[in-house]
Amino acid sequence: MEPKYWDLIAKKLSGEITAEEDRELNSWLQSDSNAQTFKQVSKLWENTEDPSRDYTPDAETEWQKLQAKINQPKVLFLKRYWLKMAASILLLLGLTYLLSTLFKTSGGATLVEVVTTDSVMVVYLPDSSRVYLNKNTTLTYPEAFNSNERLVFLNGEGFFEVIPGNVPFIIACNGTRTKVLGTSFNIKGYEEDEEVEVIVVTGHVELSDEDDSSSKIVLEPNDRGAFNKKHSGISKSKNTRKDFKWWAKHDLEKDIKKIIRKVKRKIK
């Protein structure tokens, strides 16, 4: 049904219809189904009941209420204003505290966050240790290591070449702690992975559950340690993957080739 006829019916019922429009409506009503619709709508119109028909508000009570509101708006405003001020200052203080505790671990040092997306990257840590970061990996470390540990946070995959030192080097990765003094090894632990995997190339590595430091294993060269996130279980096996470090070399080789080509061109 065309909206025009709804408008015409409404005009007819509310007494707004002109003579010409009335003729148009009448010719439309010649059809039985149209006439039926008109009958139905008129019935509805008649059966709308005024909700205020027997409604008499209590003017006296309402006047008293209004008086109460009028006589103290200034005080109310002031109170609320100070309350708001106090609340926002408190909020600001709380936020500052929260942020400072979040970002200032490891003895108050500022944290550096390195994020890779679609390429491999080499990062040198403050103690000259070298980390190859695979794609889609986040490494967080302090600008300067403190005196009793070298703590970094990894989410993703990294090949670590840790410079020997007097304090342990610790990698926190999705519920695990990998502790070393100086070695090279690969850690793979993306947030969505079921397990965190550590493969050792040289030296000794200690892998433990972050929440339960008594649950730990020592890994030797060519050992593979795994931590299952669901069961929090740590297991050790011989590494069968030969290509675990391939990702780190792969991109580098490309880069080196590029450099060689550039150098050759210069020499010519």
């Binding site: 909206p3 408008d7 015409l8 019916i9 409404a10 509805l44």
Partner: peptide, 15 residues
């Protein structure tokens, strides 16, 4: 005008 027509249409549809 349009809103009045629409009101009737809605009412008829609902009922």
């Amino acid at each position: 005008e349009n809103q009045m027509g629409k009101a009737l249409e809605i009412m008829r549809e609902e009922l």
